[in-house]
Amino acid sequence: MTCNYDFHQPQWCPGCGNFDLLVCVKDALCGANLGPRDFIMVTGIGQASKLGFSVKCNLFNGLHGRALPLATGVNMANHKVKLISVSGDGDYYAEGGNHFIHAARRNLNIAVFAGDNRVYGLTKGQASPTASPEFTTPIHPEGVGGKPLNPALLALASGATFVARSFTGNKEELTGLMKQAIAHRGFALVDIMSPCITFNKTNTFGWFKQRAKPVGPEHDASSFDAAVSLVSREQETIPTGLLYKADRPVYSDRFSALKGEALARLAPAYSPDRVKPLFEKYK
């Protein structure tokens, strides 16, 4: 199909990984045959989230960290429509950490594209949950300390059924994984290493490029144990590609009310009379 999602020009720093992210999102949407009206994009707050404004589509740009519960509500109202969420490491893993866990646990049918630059760009250079312990900022002049959050491991532990990792410097791989994530029925995370050229002088394009290494054919993405072992190993390289994929009932499968048509089609025709049988219980 011919695809045109062009909308507002994005306003990122020249060289920002988000430009590559945007190109790949559009290519993946086109490749997945999703026209502008065929999906709903739900975003949060942060530089990566601003990507939504540059895509012609149905968009709900919500609060910081709250894209996923909002998407859950969209799914309850219309489980037939494809959901795509784009945001960053601060949004999904800090402010929205609780929601991330529970959306994955429920296996909400959504493709989640996390632009992970390990820093807060919108607020100008604070540490994100994925920042390394040595990363220094004015708030953390002696380093962030602790242990960086591991998004892939968190997603696996939380019940995500599609976990992938990629790098904006490898657009072919990234677009392919996004397409697979969109096609996946369930909670699909693509954690995307994306350089912030202004505020993260540690995890630069070169730093990511040196470490990002596609997983070899020896990795069995259908094995939960293999995926956990792969992503929890401390190593010099960061394996990219499809890390884990499983089939499990999606969130909406637990509702008999969501077996057929979307509630968004059915509910507007609901008659008040349908509650009459409930009265019996109170007699």
């Binding site: 709250r66 519960p69 859950t72 509500g73 109202a77 219309n78 429509v81 968004a264 507007p268």
Partner: peptide, 15 residues
């Protein structure tokens, strides 16, 4: 917080 965002999402999507 999730409860209200779910309601907002549901309403946006037409219910």
């Amino acid at each position: 917080i999730a409860a209200l965002n779910i309601a907002i999402g549901g309403s946006y999507a037409g219910v």
